[in-house]
Simulated scan of single mutants.
Amino acid sequence: MVNNHRKDIHLSLSHDQYDDLTSALETHRDGLQQFVKESALGFGLETTYWSHRVAEVQGLLEAVHRLAAGESPDVVKHELQRLSHDSQEHPPS
């Protein structure tokens, strides 16, 4: 999946909002993981596509955790861009 357009989002969240955001990302990741299982049985898109999406959402979740822990937004952004660039050079087959 190639997505060259990026969005920078700067948020200030309450503890409840942070919990809601991370729970939503975990639920989304887990839903995509179910698609991985179903695709292994021959349903839907290829397993590699869904596995790649799971990894993308997991990376986003980890970035949210790192930012909430006080890590530099520039460092996290740079790493996410590097990971995105690497996945574009080596897309799932």
Rank of each mutant, 00 (worst) to 15 (best):
E62M: 05
R53H: 10
Q88W: 09
E46A: 12
D74Y: 03
L32N: 02
S39A: 12
D8N: 12
K77M: 03
A69N: 09
G31I: 06
H52C: 08
Q81C: 07
T47L: 03
H28C: 10
H85N: 11
L32Y: 07
V36E: 05
L13N: 03
A69M: 09
D16L: 05
L25D: 05
Y49D: 11
W50H: 11
H15L: 11
Y49M: 11
S84H: 11
F43S: 13
N4V: 13
G70W: 02
A40I: 08
I9K: 07
H28N: 10
Y18F: 13
V64N: 00
A55R: 04
Q58P: 01
Q58Y: 08
H65P: 00
V54P: 02
D20W: 06
D20P: 01
E79P: 01
L25P: 03
F35L: 12
S12H: 14
L61N: 07
S87M: 12
H5S: 10
E46K: 13
T27C: 09
D86G: 04
M1K: 12
W50P: 01
D74P: 04
L25W: 02
N3A: 12
V76Y: 00
S72Q: 01
T47S: 06
E71P: 02
E26F: 08
R82L: 13
S87V: 11
S84E: 12
F43I: 14
R29G: 02
Q33E: 15
Q88M: 15
V2P: 04
A63C: 06
H85K: 14
R53D: 03
L60V: 07
H10A: 12
A24R: 15
S51V: 07
V36C: 05
E89P: 01
E71V: 00
L41V: 07
S12E: 13
G59E: 05
W50S: 01
D74C: 04
V2A: 08
